[in-house]
Simulated assay, not measured.
Amino acid sequence: MVIINPYLNFDGQAEEAFNFYKSIFGGEFTMVKKVGESPGTENLTDNEKERIMHIALPIGPNTILMASDILPSFGHQLVKGNTTHLCLHPDSREEAKRLFDGLSEGGTIEMPMEDMFWGDYFGSFKDKYAIFWMISFSQK
Score class of each variant (00 low, 15 high):
10 F>C: 01
41 T>E: 06
92 S>H: 09
34 K>M: 10
89 H>S: 13
69 D>N: 00
20 F>Q: 08
78 L>A: 03
98 R>M: 14
35 V>E: 03
33 K>Y: 09
50 E>D: 14
114 E>M: 14
119 G>K: 12
35 V>P: 00
83 T>C: 12
51 R>T: 05
108 T>P: 01
29 F>I: 10
29 F>M: 12
10 F>I: 02
10 F>M: 03
92 S>F: 07
3 I>L: 10
15 E>R: 15
35 V>H: 03
83 T>F: 08
17 A>D: 08
108 T>D: 12
124 S>P: 14
109 I>D: 09
40 G>C: 05
111 M>S: 10
17 A>I: 06
135 I>E: 02
104 S>V: 00
28 E>A: 12
79 V>L: 13
42 E>T: 04
88 L>G: 00
6 P>D: 02
79 V>R: 10
136 S>K: 02
76 H>T: 01
46 D>Q: 08
109 I>L: 08
139 Q>S: 15
68 S>L: 00
14 A>E: 02
32 V>W: 10
91 D>A: 13
60 G>Y: 07
61 P>A: 13
135 I>L: 05
28 E>K: 12
98 R>H: 07
28 E>P: 01
134 M>G: 07
2 V>E: 05
118 W>T: 10
112 P>Y: 02
106 G>E: 07
18 F>P: 05
134 M>A: 10
48 E>Y: 09
59 I>N: 04
93 R>N: 10
102 G>H: 13
139 Q>D: 12
17 A>G: 09
2 V>Q: 07
